[in-house]
Each structure stands twice: as structure tokens, then as C-alpha cells.
Amino acid sequence: MTDFAILRAPSEVLFGAGMAAAAGRVAASHGHRVLVITDPVIASTPGFATVTDSLSALEVTIFSDAVVDVPRSAVDAAVALGESVKPDVIVAVGGGSVIDLAKVTALLLAHGGPLENYYAVQSVPGPVVPLIALPTTAGTGSEATPVSVITDPATEMKIGVASPHLIPRHAICDPLLTIGAPPIVTAHSGIDALSHAVEAYMAAREEPTVDLVLGRPQVGKNLLSDTLALTAAGHIARNLARAVEDGSDLEARTGMLYGSLLAGIAFGNSGVSAAHALQFAVGAATHTSHGLGTGLLLPYVMEFNRPARTAEIAELSALMGGDAIEQVHALGLQIGLPASLAEIGVDQGDLRPMAEASVGIKRLIDNNPRPLDVDALEAILDAAWHGDPERLRAVGLATA
């Protein structure tokens, strides 16, 4: 298969302790009117004050009612405020839900609604309001990706709006902004970042064509996504447990934020697969966090995909100091993830309906390196329900 590489990323990345103070000068390059989007918790932090202080010479309006999982009510409220102030630039300070809200706000202010018009991949017609993203978790990588994950009111499931136009214009990544994140947020967002890195590295690979690379925001496994994903996995594996155990460890926080950024760029170009597809159904049923779901499911998806990605598993294993699947499973337990789907209230009878709900998320299912049908997805969920990745080998699904 022909080698190829794709890189779509923010036009500017500023990384390092103290970089949050650059937000004002970066925003001023786009105009005078600024809409800041955040949530009530972040709005009360010293890091947020650093950002707003840097914006003091500009005309600033703050929307601080962002809500986890981006419900339509938050989108409508943010857009209504944006329509009243007509911002030249949007500044998002927060975790993935805040940045995702900012992305769809920038989209709707530029092109109008309804939001359902943009559910189809590549349906955003052009540039959105310029966006500066300052992540406060490590993380979703949303500061560098072409995807905004929102909750669809019709189905109450999460859905991704995907377009290269949604990639923030600027990513300002300051590890000092992540210091206040509590251990459970650090754990769930951090294992999600590892899921991004691993699924990007193990994604499906297609023969490159112009239609492929220009027709989709995420194009599968390629040379640049591989390099970024592998580096990201190493940083995250080395630093996640440290960051959870001691939230003031700036070295660990820096390593995690760097790993999350690289993983975001990696999967923003390659895409993710089965762990994320299954999490949509698991999260909707259990109302558990996105990171908890992807992190819990990740070793099971890796085990299922082992026959198709033996070289990649070997590379990850060398990086992690042991079999990668065992290491990822153990890391999840070390940082406090539930040991099984049963532990978060999933009944065994729910597994088949969850698999049926997930198989239709083709953007993710088709990006898995091994073909997935409802039976395969149910087997992955069953192993996760029992808390035993090796169960996939026992039922014969992890053999070539």
C-alpha cells in the first residue's frame, strides 16, 4: 500500500507554562469584540482570570454556562449571546465540552442553523468565526481536532459534527490551567487521551486518493498520524498515574497536556474507532463520562484488533514496558476506572442493544482495522462486562 501523510491542525500552537497570558494578543489579531466561552467552575479559577486579564484591552462578553456533553440548550444560549454581540473571535477556556460548544457556536454564528444541517461529514460550507482554544484538561484534544461532539436532542445520544473548518485557529496549551483539575477528571480525561493515541495508531488504512484525502476530515492511519500518536502514547503512559496521584506535579501535567495535544492532532487526521463508537451507547445508557467509557473499553478493543495490528501492538508494548493491552488495562485500574461494565450498572441483557446502536456509527466503525458487525461488537462488550480482555481470545474472536 502506498505511504501517505495528512496533517490538518491549528494554524498556531502555543505550548508551555505561562502561555495563557498570550490569549489577549492573539485575540486582538482578529478584531476587538471577543466572546469567551467557559463553564461556571472554570470561570472562578485563577487560570481563567489570567486569560481575562490578558483580554482587558478588548470588548469582552463572557458566556459561562457551558454544560458537560453539550446539550442543545447550551448551544442555543451561547449562539443567542453571540448573535447579540457579533464577536470577531471566540475564546474557549475549558475542557472538551466547553471547546466543543465553542466550535458549534462559531459554526452557527457564521452559517446559521439548524445544527442538524451539519451532522453529515463535510457539510460545513466554509470558515467559521475564528476560535482560540485553551484546554483546562488533558484531555479530549478538542483544541486541535475537526470534531465537535454534542448531544442530539432527538436521540439523547452524542453525535459528532466533523469538518476541517472546526479546527480552532489557535491552540494555547498551558499546563498551569490543568493544575486545578480534580483526580477523577484527570483520570477520565487522561485515559481518553490515551484512547485517542492508541486508536489513531491502530486505525484502518486505505489506499490514498484525492477523493479520500479531500472528501473526509479524518482519513485513517497515515505516516504523520502514526508518528504523533506513538509519541503521544508514550507521554501519556508515563505521566497519567503521576498526574492523578499528585495534581500539583507540573512535570506530569505538562507531559499529559503535550500527549493530549499530539493525540488530538493524530486522531483529528486519522480518526478513532470501536472504543469510541461503543462508548456512545454505553454513555447514553449509564450517564457516565466519555473518558470513563473509552478508557474502560480500550483494552478490549485492542485485544479484538490484535491480529490486525501485531506490529503496532509490539511498538506500543516496547513503549509501555510490557504487553500493551495488559499495560493499558492495568493503568485503567490503577487510576480508578471501574473493572467492568457490570460495575457501572450495565445489565448483560443490554449488551446486544448497545452493539446494535453502535454498529450504525459508520464514521467510527469503518475506521476499525478489523471488520465489525453486531456480533463482534457484542463480544467486545461481553468481555468488558466480565472485566476480562482475554475472554475475546477464548471465544475465538482474537485469532487471525
Rank of each mutant, 00 (worst) to 15 (best):
I62R: 08
I62W: 00
I62H: 02
I62T: 15
F63S: 04
F63L: 00
F63Y: 15
S64V: 00
S64P: 02
S64I: 01
S64R: 08
D65E: 15
D65W: 00
D65T: 05
D65R: 10
D65V: 00
D65A: 14
D65C: 01
A66K: 00
A66W: 00
A66T: 02
A66M: 01
V67Y: 00
V67K: 03
V67L: 07
V67F: 00
V67W: 00
V67S: 06
V67G: 03
V68Q: 14
V68W: 00
V68M: 14
V68F: 01
V68L: 07
V68R: 09
D69Y: 03
D69W: 02
D69V: 01
D69A: 12
V70M: 05
V70E: 09
P71M: 05
P71K: 06
P71D: 12
P71C: 06
R72S: 14
R72Q: 15
R72K: 09
R72L: 14
R72A: 15
R72N: 13
R72D: 15
R72Y: 11
S73E: 15
S73T: 14
S73R: 10
S73N: 09
S73F: 00
S73Q: 14
A74F: 08
A74P: 04
A74I: 02
A74C: 09
V75K: 01
V75G: 11
V75E: 06
V75H: 03
D76A: 13
D76G: 06
D76N: 13
D76L: 04
D76F: 00
A77R: 12
A77L: 07
A77V: 04
A78D: 11
A78H: 05
V79I: 07
V79P: 07
V79E: 09
V79G: 12
V79W: 04
V79F: 12
A80I: 03
A80N: 08
A80D: 14
L81N: 08
L81K: 10
L81D: 10
L81F: 03
L81A: 13
G82Q: 08
G82R: 03
G82P: 10
E83N: 14
E83V: 09
E83M: 11
E83F: 05
S84E: 15
V85Q: 08
V85A: 12
V85R: 11
V85H: 08
K86L: 14
K86W: 07
K86M: 13
K86P: 01
K86N: 14
P87F: 12
P87C: 11
P87T: 11
P87G: 12
P87E: 11
D88F: 12
D88R: 04
D88E: 13
D88L: 10
D88M: 06
D88Q: 06
D88N: 14
D88P: 06
D88H: 13
V89A: 13
V89T: 08
V89Q: 08
V89K: 01
V89Y: 11
I90Y: 06
I90S: 09
I90W: 02
I90Q: 04
I90R: 03
V91P: 10
V91N: 09
V91Y: 07
V91L: 10
V91S: 12
V91E: 13
V91R: 04
A92P: 09
A92I: 08
A92D: 12
A92E: 09
V93F: 10
V93R: 02
V93Y: 04
